[in-house]
Structure formats: structure tokens, C-alpha cells
């Protein structure tokens, strides 16, 4: 599904190149649950952003489902966002002016899915996440864990083939974090959704089936986990 070849990322500042990523080469298959780990500033988030096409690598090749991402136009990227990629953020990034239901509906609107189907899909997701009662609340009326659930629901509703999560539990208490991780695992196993998460927590990493460890922009370790 994802092929990275010799990805490099650096910032040139006053003639000095400061590398974020160096020679990153790896591949991720459909249905994997990969955790990216490493100390602060190692380049985990940058890698995830490159995978999510939010940032462009300075150098290297990136193929997403067989297509060369670096050569893609913005319109094609947006098509990928709409159909294949779901994002989950550490700070949830819900739209404050929209209710829970509207937040979840937004990606479907951009995907131009007809109204009836939108309704049934939203109802479905709300039901699955036990949030039917909260559908008309605004994000600031929810707890952090609930907000993140909405964030995941929003990522899922468009039925993506991969979810990219940047420290999804970083702002949550451990009980809520566990709930989220359980959910990810379930999605991965039952629906065969590829999940890529950046995390600090050794415990959370254990939910997945593969751990990439990055240090100073280089992949140090690539191990399988037998959960």
C-alpha cells in the first residue's frame, strides 16, 4: 500500500542543512497496524505528515497504492483525502463551530455523498460510538476522550483504507486512552483498516503488530509485535 524509498527531509537555514529525516525506506501493507516511536524531535511526526501528504519530502520516492505521490497535483491529493485517508490528531482538531453530527458529516459533504446515505452513515457511526445523545453538542461541551472519539468517527465515516493518527491519546487520561486504542485494534482486525500511529507510549505501541523506531531521522528498529 505504501512504498517509501530513500525519503529525506531537511531545512536549509543560512546554508546549513538540518536534517529531519534521512534515508527512510520502508513499506507498509494493507491491514497492518504500525506504531512509530522515538524520542521528541526524532522526526516521527514529520514522517507521518509525509505519509499523509501534508508535507513534501525534500528528496525520495513515495508511492501510495501504486501511485507516485510526489508527482500528484493538489486535486488528486484531495481525492485521496476524500476516499482513502483518515486523519486523527493529538489535539482532536474538531471544528468548533460545528456540532458533533456536523463534524462527522463534513467529510461526506466534501465527498458529495447524497443526503440520505449521509444520514444513515452518520447514524451508524454515532450508534457504534455510543454518542447518539451527544450529536447536537458542540466540541467544547465534550470531554477530551469524547472529542477524540468524534475525531475518530469523523475519520472513519468516509470509509478510508488507512488512518493516520498523530499521538491520538497524547492529551487523554489512561482510561480514555485505552478505550481509543481498543477501538483502533478492533478497526484494524475487524475491518482490515490500515492504521499508522505516532506514539510515545510503549503500552500503546503494543496494540499494533509492527513498531518502527526512529532516532535522529533514521529508522533504528523495525520489529513485529505479536499481540
Amino acid at each position: 500500500m505504501i512504498e517509501l524509498k530513500n525519503i529525506e527531509k531537511y531545512y536549509a537555514n543560512k546554508g546549513v542543512k538540518s536534517y529531519i529525516l534521512r534515508h527512510v525506506t520502508t513499506s507498509i501493507k494493507q491491514g497492518e497496524f504500525v506504531s512509530i516511536m522515538g524520542p521528541s524531535g526524532a522526526g516521527k511526526s514529520t514522517l507521518l505528515n509525509i505519509l499523509g501528504m501534508l508535507e513534501e519530502p525534500t528528496y525520495g520516492e513515495y508511492h501510495f497504492m501504486g501511485e507516485d505521490v510526489t508527482a500528484m497535483k493538489e486535486r488528486q491529493r484531495i481525492e485521496l483525502y476524500r476516499n482513502h485517508i483518515g486523519f486523527v490528531f493529538q489535539a482532536y482538531h474538531l471544528i468548533d463551530e460545528m456540532t458533533v453530527a456536523e463534524n462527522i458529516e463534513a467529510p461526506l459533504l466534501y465527498k458529495k455523498i447524497p443526503g440520505a446515505e449521509r444520514k444513515s452513515r452518520i447514524a451508524d457511526v454515532l450508534d457504534r460510538f455510543n454518542m447518539v445523545a451527544k450529536k447536537d453538542l458542540f466540541p467544547n461541551q465534550l470531554s477530551g476522550g469524547q472529542q477524540q472519539l468524534v475525531g475518530i468517527a469523523r475519520a472513519l465515516v468516509a470509509q478510508p483504507s488507512i488512518i493516520l493518527a498523530d499521538e491520538p491519546t497524547g492529551n487523554l487520561q489512561s482510561a480514555q486512552a485505552e478505550q481509543i486504542m481498543d477501538l483502533f485494534k478492533k478497526l484494524n482486525q475487524e475491518e482490515n483498516i490500515t492504521i499508522l500511529q505516532v506514539t510515545h507510549s510503549e503500552k500503546n505501541a503494543q496494540y499494533g503488530n509492527r513498531i518502527l523506531t526512529i532516532e535522529d531521522g533514521v529508522i533504528k528498529e523495525d520489529v513485529s509485535v505479536n499481540g
Binding site: 501534508l54 483525502y81 476524500r82 486523519f87 482538531h93 474538531l94 466534501y110 465527498k111 475519520a155
Partner: peptide
Amino acid sequence: GIKKTIGAN
């Protein structure tokens, strides 16, 4: 930013 990541053009 959020809207762009969920598919807004």
C-alpha cells in the same frame, strides 16, 4: 487545515 485534511478543496 482540518477541512483540507478531510477532503475540502
